[in-house]
Amino acid sequence: MLLGKTYPAGGMGQAEAALNDIARHPATAQHIATAFARHFIADDPPPAAVARLAKVFAKSDGDLRALAMALIDLPEAWSTPMMKLRSPLEYVVAVRRAAGPGPTNVPNQSLGWLNTLGEPLWQPPGPNGFSDRTDSWASAEGMKVRLDIAWQAARQAGDISNPNDMLDALIGPSASPETRQAIARAESKQQGLALLLMAPEFQRR
């Protein structure tokens, strides 16, 4: 008995039938659409965008590719301000892409950063996974750790050509005048790079 419907006993078929019904349940479309929109648009995504995605999910019988295409077509996906904070995994990957692999080119340091930031790789605290909301990551401890990581990455970066050029390459179009100024006035290339890795435009997405 599941959601008011009785499934006759009969091995694997029983479970498959139940799972199929769960997958096609309207609440599932709503749930997946919300998770999608929360990840790509905003913590509390516009209801219209969620409704549109839920419709596509139902219509395509759960085709995630179709869902992704629909998301790209949503104006909200492009117009919403950058309010989400990069998750620890996104942040660590972005830091590595910006500042290089570090001294040894082995993943240990990056994995250590993820542990310290509270998102150990593939080890969520429960089956519902890690949080996908900004307020879960923009914590006091979390931001302090990001500062330490930014400094460590900047210190280890082999060859920092010019932080101002890096700014243009990494966050160019979205960079605020204040961020440009802060980086231009840094007392060293290392500090400039660390500031860039801490800039709101680098933290948020």
């Binding site: 542990n115 509270g118 080890q123 949080s131």
Partner: peptide, 10 residues
């Protein structure tokens, strides 16, 4: 995880 961290929930 050996080190640190703490996400404050909210």
């Amino acid at each position: 995880s050996r080190r640190a961290v703490l996400m404050t929930g909210g």
